[in-house]
Amino acid sequence: MLQFKLVLLGDSSVGKSSIVHRFVKDSFDEYRESTIGAAFLSQTIKLSEEYDEQVLKFEIWDTAGQERYKSLAPMYYRNANAALVVYDVTEPDSLPKAKLWVDELKEKVNDDKLIICLVGNKLDLVSERESTSLVDEADAREFAQENNLLFHQVSAKTGENVIKVFQDIGERLYLQNKDKIQESKKPNNNNISLQRPSTNDSQSCCS
């Protein structure tokens, strides 16, 4: 089974945990591999034919979104394969904060292979709000393009687009690791993890 580490970043009010709970709940799990804990979840997905119907597993690391716990984030995003940076489409202040997360990832992780997806949540509330009180979609889209990010707007409440986010990330991961994946399909080598062990550098604890 291919495993990838995905870290969730975003302010505490943007509903990042709800997106993942929705994803795990709505995914059909024929492999019974999902884990639902308080802050760590895992879920397998199967890609489309175009991507060889590859099955992969996301290990989803949630982070605390409160400002005061920001300093804990590096503990979580090191060695991540993908990051979901979430903002709230009905909360204009939340986009600049998401942008700061993207900047931090680019600076600290500094890994071209890290796949970052910018996600606007609470799409279901858009119709009830004045357009002036919403995040400008074009602004978010442009930022995503400039920084080579994936971009989606979702509703964790209705489930709209949620699975698409993970499919999209999965496809990118597949393309990125195609060689290794094909290698793994050879006999006797069916369980590789592309993750680096995440807690084994001597610098990591309390340094």
């Binding site: 949630d62 982070t63 605390a64 409160q66 716990y69």
Partner: peptide, 9 residues
């Protein structure tokens, strides 16, 4: 469902 926001504190 509150995730790490609730758990870490």
């Amino acid at each position: 469902n509150g995730g790490a926001d609730h758990f870490v504190p």
